[in-house]
């Protein structure tokens, strides 16, 4: 019995020495890593192991949102599947935009409110000058990571802005600004990358054969602005939608005018 107890004591002492050695080695590794700068801040764009107490270790991507974008990860294949984008708008509206299995192509511009390089993109995207048949979606990270009011302040008039962290994760966006071109019919990513300015992104489109198709969107925008201006003037003059005078041509006969005035109003007021 004494021999057995003695043997157990020896085993315990040996194990204690082994554990102490392992802890010391671990501490040395941590100290060296700390000296190299790791752990002082999250290294965005790099896959980071995040210990989650009580659950198996998970891996997540922390994209850069500071205007610097690392090189695309080598394990991101060309022609990979794109994804539809669901999220909320900066005004709180729910939005689900179809990207896959549609006739149009989609340019997804991933921006953040905090990166200085993105500022130029926010401004330039007020007039994106995209080829016909190409839709623009601006995607920021979700409301848990971005301020809706800051995004709303930056959002160009008329642009669709979706706050969706899942879109960043699913498309493996490494940082902002970052642009993904999705081919609608095939649902595949056909181009992606970053640039210093939106003009550089457009230049890539032109090199891809998109020149000659620019400009018609501007024409539509000009028409819309002209129509809004006319509406404003008419309303200021007391002429509301449905006013009979809107349906009377300059060469109408008195009978025509009378008929126009008896036209029933729409069943529901335009909201």
């Amino acid at each position: 019995m004494t021999i057995v107890v003695g043997a157990l004591v020896v085993v315990v002492i040996l194990l204690a020495i082994l554990v102490a050695g392992l802890l010391r080695s671990h501490a040395t590794i941590l100290r060296r890593l700390h000296e190299l700068g790791a752990g002082t801040e999250l290294d965005p764009g790099v896959r980071v192991a995040t210990p989650d107490p009580g659950t198996p270790t998970t891996t997540r991507v922390v994209p850069r949102t500071d205007g610097t974008v690392p090189a695309p990860s080598p394990d991101v294949p060309d022609g990979r599947p794109a994804t539809d984008v669901s999220g909320v708008g900066p005004r709180g509206e729910a939005i689900a935009a179809r990207v896959v299995g549609v006739e149009h192509d989609t340019v997804l511009v991933f921006l953040s409110s905090g990166c200085t390089t993105c500022l130029g993109f926010w401004e330039d995207l007020a007039s994106p000058q995209l080829p016909d048949g190409t839709r623009l979606l601006i995607v920021t990270r979700g409301v848990e990571e971005e301020s809706p009011s800051a995004v709303l302040e930056l959002a160009p008039p008329g642009a669709t802005v979706i706050m969706s962290s899942s879109a960043w994760d699913e498309l493996r966006v490494p940082g902002s600004p970052f642009v993904v071109l999705a081919h609608g019919p095939s649902g595949r990513v056909v181009g992606e990358g970053t640039a210093e300015s939106w003009a550089q992104v457009l230049a890539l489109f032109l090199r891809a054969g998109g020149d000659g198709r620019l400009g018609s969107r501007d024409k539509a925008g000009a028409d819309r602005r002209r129509e809004q201006e006319l509406d404003r003037i008419l309303l200021a003059s007391g002429i509301a939608p449905g006013d009979p005078s809107l349906y009377r041509s300059s060469d109408a006969t008195p009978a025509d005018a009378a008929a126009a005035e008896t036209t029933p109003d729409a069943a529901t007021e335009e909201r």
Binding site: D84, S86, V88, G89, R91, G92, E93, A94, I95, A96, A97, R98, G101, V102
Partner: peptide, 19 residues
């Protein structure tokens, strides 16, 4: 799509917004 007490499961080719 879900928001403000409305929800819609959209077939392929459809998209939407609730504001």
């Amino acid at each position: 799509l879900r928001g403000h007490g409305l929800a819609a499961e959209m077939p392929p080719g459809w998209e939407g917004a609730i504001s």
